[in-house]
């Protein structure tokens, strides 16, 4: 066997392994079937809660061995809406770690479930109604850099924390959801039974309305910032820049040097 055959076999094995990973069974996401009955929102909320949530949280939000109770001091509209709107709930498997994903319900259904959960004993804040347009963008920039940039990044791309916590990217996140996160302090691993709202990776921020609106306005700006200077290459800073400088700049120049440095006829 020559080295060339060995390289060929290695590449072929790699492609085969990659193909297997790609073709292996992806778990199909949970999609509740559409309901055609003309139930009102109250019944709809109850129906969806009983069908998708009560398994783990109990039919009155009292909690079971699979999921925490929903009657704590910070539980309520804001936290419920946050978990549903960020797609972290419902879970297919209570042992699985919840992660931000596209929401499993339409907005009206989320509102219906939220209203149902609000009839439980949680005393936490309700769904906020922020108005980013009322905020001051420069004030928001300062508050954002003070309080949010350390984890979510000054460019809002998110990042990693210790012990596997993921700080979400804020791109595409609605102002309501961000306001809820500031009110409740989410980020508990759902696999932990000892951690509740307000004790998660994200601190709870008790800010006045104007500050909240200003931060939201700055985050809205960061979602579509002034993009002078060309392609933003991910907005992660020097890592992407280094990749472009070496992978594009230096490589291009080496190829160009080879082009002009080789006489016609010298090339094999």
């Amino acid at each position: 066997m020559t080295a060339r055959t060995a390289v060929f076999v290695a590449v072929a094995l790699g492609i085969a392994a990659g193909a297997c990973t790609y073709l292996s069974d992806e778990p199909t996401p949970f999609r509740p079937p559409g309901v055609t009955s003309d139930v009102n929102a109250e019944q709809r909320g109850l129906e969806l809660y009983e069908r998708d949530c009560a398994w783990c949280h109990g039919s009155a939000g009292e909690g079971t061995s699979f999921g925490p109770d929903l009657n704590g001091p910070l539980d309520g509209g804001a936290y419920t809406h946050f978990m549903l709107a960020t797609g972290q709930m419902p879970l297919e498997d209570p042992e699985k770690r919840a992660a931000p994903a596209s929401p499993r319900y339409e907005a009206a259904d989320i509102d219906a479930i939220v209203r149902h959960v609000e009839t439980f004993g949680g005393t936490g804040p309700g769904v906020p109604t922020p108005s980013p347009a009322a905020g001051d963008i420069a004030e928001g920039a300062e508050l954002y850099l003070d309080n949010c940039a350390a984890c979510h990044s000054s460019t809002a791309v998110g990042g990693a924390l210790t012990s596997g916590e993921v700080v979400p990217d804020l791109d595409g996140v609605s102002p309501v959801v961000v306001a809820e996160a500031m009110l409740v302090g989410p980020g508990c691993p759902n696999t932990s039974r000892t951690c509740g709202p307000g004790e998660g990776a994200m601190p709870r921020f008790e800010l006045d309305e104007r500050s909240v609106n200003s931060i939201l306005r700055y985050i809205e700006y960061l979602q579509r910032p002034i993009d002078e200077g060309g392609a933003p290459i991910g907005r992660v800073g020097p890592v992407a820049e280094g990749a472009v400088a070496l992978g594009v700049g230096v490589v291009a120049l080496l190829l160009l040097a080879r082009w002009i440095g080789t006489r016609t006829g010298d090339r094999e």
Binding site: C151, G159, V236, P238, V239, E241, G242, A243
Partner: peptide, 9 residues
């Protein structure tokens, strides 16, 4: 502080 924070390559 901001994160991710890396120096130039």
């Amino acid at each position: 502080v901001t994160s991710p924070a890396q120096p130039d390559w």
